[in-house]
Simulated scan of single mutants.
Amino acid sequence: MEKELKLDLFLCKSLLYLLLITNATFSKTTWNVCQFRSVECVCQNVPNNQLKVDCSGRRLLNIPTFSSSVIWVDLSNNLIEEITSGFPKNVRYIDLSANKIQHLDGQPFLGLFHLKTLNLERNVLNISLLYQGVFSDLHSLTELSFKGNIRNEITETVIKDEVFAELSSLKTLKIDGSPNATFGKGFANLTHLQNLDLSGITGNCSLKKISRNMFLYLTRLVYIDVSACSVLDIEKGTFGKLRKLKHLDVSHNRELGFASLPNITHNLKDTSIKTLRANGINCLTGMGTMILKRHLENLKHTNISEIYFEKNRLEQLEPQALRLLPINLTLISFGENKLTT
């Protein structure tokens, strides 16, 4: 009987502890109405008497004046045209996506030494007009997104490497890919940059051609996404110089075809590549396609574990082509093709 009572007591305590933890978890996710002068938003309390503030979708024309306790700000889907007022000095996250910001003036991010994420997607910013000093105080920034700012394929965009060189802590860069996109010597200063997203799926991209020197100064890249970029040609060995590269996505560039695979995969054995995505690189119309041995021969001595060849109107594989696949391969997907016996 005593053992049963002790067991019951233990179970009751455990249940009470679980309820307390659950309630604490729910209380942390509660959002309450809050006001910054005349602007009504919703706020969430986080540890150390700090606030997360969501002012998205309120048709705001200006950035509210936030209290010093605010460390996270969502101002997306508003009508803001310029960054006129300063943000709290301890802010870590700013989302200004889907506004009407046309240009950055002066020092819009003055004193934001702790900011880690800045989202400027889907505005009307011309990054060619960025100037040295605009990012000079963003010492801690790890993620920056400019996706969806190029409005048409003929827009001449210059990526000024001396401007981006100021972002020495940057790990992830999401940017539109204009036809003349280059990443100059200044990017060598970004020694922590690992992820580069140029995809036309999440923004605008019309690269047309990817030269072998395009990523010359981005030697620490781990992840590259050039999907849906209207790419017609990728020069031989473009990716083979990137020793740390693990994930490469060239999907949805319909003009590439399987004939481009030898160029794409040249010297990938010298990288750390684990995942290759080449979905939809063949035209959806016309005759079915065949993977030949020469298309895959550069893969044999790589460490790739996952390959995706989906949506390519693939009908056949040349006999023994599969023998050229890497020994560490655990997954290969031919989904949404039309393979025949």
Rank of each mutant, 00 (worst) to 15 (best):
V231S: 01
E162H: 03
E162L: 01
I201P: 01
S206F: 15
C229P: 07
D197Q: 01
M214P: 03
T202I: 03
I210Y: 08
G203V: 14
T202V: 02
L218S: 11
K174G: 15
L207H: 03
K174D: 03
C229S: 08
D197H: 05
I201G: 13
N189P: 10
S227T: 05
K185F: 10
K185N: 12
L218I: 07
C205Q: 06
V222K: 05
S178R: 04
T172F: 00
S169I: 04
K208S: 07
F183T: 05
D176E: 01
L207W: 11
I210W: 01
I175Q: 05
R220V: 05
K209R: 07
N195E: 13
G177M: 11
S168E: 14
Y217T: 04
R220H: 13
S206V: 14
Y223M: 10
S178I: 12
S227P: 08
F183L: 04
K171C: 05
L170F: 15
L196R: 03
L198S: 03
N213A: 10
F215G: 07
V226L: 06
D176Q: 00
S199P: 04
D161K: 00
N195R: 05
G203Y: 06
D225N: 14
F183H: 08
H192F: 09
L218T: 09
F183C: 04
G186H: 03
D197R: 00
L198M: 11
G200V: 06
K208N: 02
R212W: 15
G200D: 05
L207R: 01
T202M: 07
L221K: 00
G186M: 03
F183Y: 09
D197G: 00
H192I: 01
A165N: 09
L190N: 15
G203T: 07
F215K: 02
F164W: 06
L193K: 09
L218K: 01
S230L: 13
F164C: 14
L198Y: 10
F164V: 01
F183W: 10
R212D: 10
L232A: 08
S206C: 15
C229H: 04
G200P: 04
E162C: 00
L221H: 04
T172L: 14
F183E: 02
A181W: 06
V231K: 09
C205T: 02
K208L: 11
N204E: 12
L232R: 12
Q194E: 12
R220P: 15
M214N: 08
L170E: 13
L216G: 03
G200T: 06
E166D: 07
L218F: 12
N189C: 07
L170W: 11
T172V: 13
G203A: 09
Y217F: 15
G200R: 07
G186D: 03
D161F: 00
K160Y: 07
H192M: 15
R212C: 09
